[in-house]
Amino acid sequence: MKNLIFDLGDVIIPIDLTAPVRNFAMLANLPEDDVRALWKQYDIWNQYETGLIDDESFRTHVRQLLKNDAWADEVIDTAWNSVLLDLPVERIERIKSLQSKYRLFLLSNTSPIHIRRVNHVLTSLNQPTLEELFERVFYSYDVRMAKPSPDIYQHVLTEANLVASETAFFDDNSANIKAAEELGIQAIHVQPPKTILDYLKDV
Rank of each mutant, 00 (worst) to 15 (best):
N46C: 12
N109Y: 03
D151V: 07
Q41K: 13
V118F: 00
I53A: 10
A79M: 12
R59T: 01
D151Q: 13
R36W: 11
D77P: 04
M145G: 04
L52K: 08
D73R: 09
L104T: 03
H155K: 11
A79V: 04
D34V: 15
E131R: 00
E32H: 15
M145D: 09
R144V: 02
A79L: 11
A72S: 10
D55P: 01
S111T: 11
I152W: 04
R91E: 03
H61G: 14
V121L: 05
L133E: 11
D69W: 02
T123M: 06
E90C: 06
R59S: 13
D43V: 08
S108M: 03
V163C: 11
T60Q: 14
Y102M: 10
T60M: 12
W71M: 06
R94I: 06
D33G: 09
P112R: 03
E135G: 12
L84V: 04
T78N: 14
K67A: 15
S82G: 12
W80E: 11
S140P: 01
Q99D: 03
K67M: 13
E135P: 02
L66C: 09
Y141F: 15
V83M: 11
E90F: 04
S82E: 05
S100P: 00
K40N: 09
L84C: 12
N119H: 09
L38C: 13
T110Q: 03
A164V: 09
N29F: 12
L133T: 04
G51S: 04
K96T: 07
L65M: 15
P88T: 01
V118M: 03
I152T: 07
Y102G: 09
L52W: 03
A160I: 14
L104Q: 10
S124D: 04
E132W: 04
D54W: 02
P150E: 12
L157S: 04
L122F: 01
D86N: 06
D34G: 09
T129K: 06
E131C: 00
V89I: 09
T158Y: 14
R94Y: 02
N46R: 15
Q99F: 10
E93I: 10
E159P: 02
L65P: 08
D33H: 14
K40T: 14
K96G: 07
S111W: 07
T110H: 05
R91N: 08
R91K: 12
V121Q: 08
V89L: 06
W45E: 09
G51Q: 04
Y48P: 02
T123R: 13
D86K: 08
E159H: 15
S111G: 10
A146D: 01
S57G: 09
I44Q: 02
Q99Y: 09
